[in-house]
């Protein structure tokens, strides 16, 4: 049984939606899966409606509200793809909450951005490389991709594609 005071519950219920998921779960941004779970369990023990069923209606309603946001935070942070989308959103817009469906979808979107490149030059060389692939000119494709990578060295999508092409080249030999 939770031993929180009604005041504490009321206070958190009011601000639960205005905290980042990391703040709400009281974890660091680089929290591991195991520690995240521990944090979620520990807060659930305190705020789960079942743990507070003897409290007055208003406090129970508060617990319910907190629990729903806790679940949302846990759902986003435990899923690497959703967490990535959330972190990106925190950085870009500063919005503290993300739709679960939105997080899943925006990951798919960033996946395709990854592949198209983010600078004009890298985009151009990628397009050339893709054209080479269509024409079956693998050596030229590899060259163009390497150029794309000089403009955008960290792009994992480019690297994956390069590796794929090298494999194909080897297989052809």
């Amino acid at each position: 049984m939770s031993d929180l005071s009604e005041l504490e519950i009321d206070a958190l219920a009011k601000i639960a939606g205005e905290l980042s998921y990391y703040q709400l779960l009281q974890v660091e941004p680089d929290v591991s899966g195991g520690d995240l779970k521990k944090a979620y369990y520990s807060l659930s023990r305190s705020y789960h409606p079942d743990a507070n069923r003897n409290l007055p209606e208003k406090a129970r309603e508060g617990c319910h509200r907190i629990s729903k946001v806790l679940t949302e935070a846990y759902c986003v942070l435990r899923d690497p793809r959703k967490r990535k989308a959330y972190d990106a959103q925190l950085e870009e817009t500063g919005d503290l909450r993300i739709q679960l469906a939105e997080a899943a979808a925006s990951h798919a979107k960033s996946e395709s951005v990854r592949r198209t490149g983010s600078t004009p030059q890298s985009k151009q060389f990628l397009l050339k490389a893709e054209e080479d692939v269509r024409n079956g000119n693998l050596p030229s494709a590899v060259q163009n991709l390497q150029m794309a990578l000089t403009f955008e060295p960290g792009n994992t999508g480019f690297n994956e594609m390069l590796e794929e092409l090298r494999k194909r080249q080897q297989a052809d030999k």
Binding site: K68, Q99, L100, A101
Partner: peptide
Amino acid sequence: AEPIIERNTPVPIEQSR
């Protein structure tokens, strides 16, 4: 039909759109 809350999402949960 657009998904709002995916299956195997823990409950209680709330989403608004």
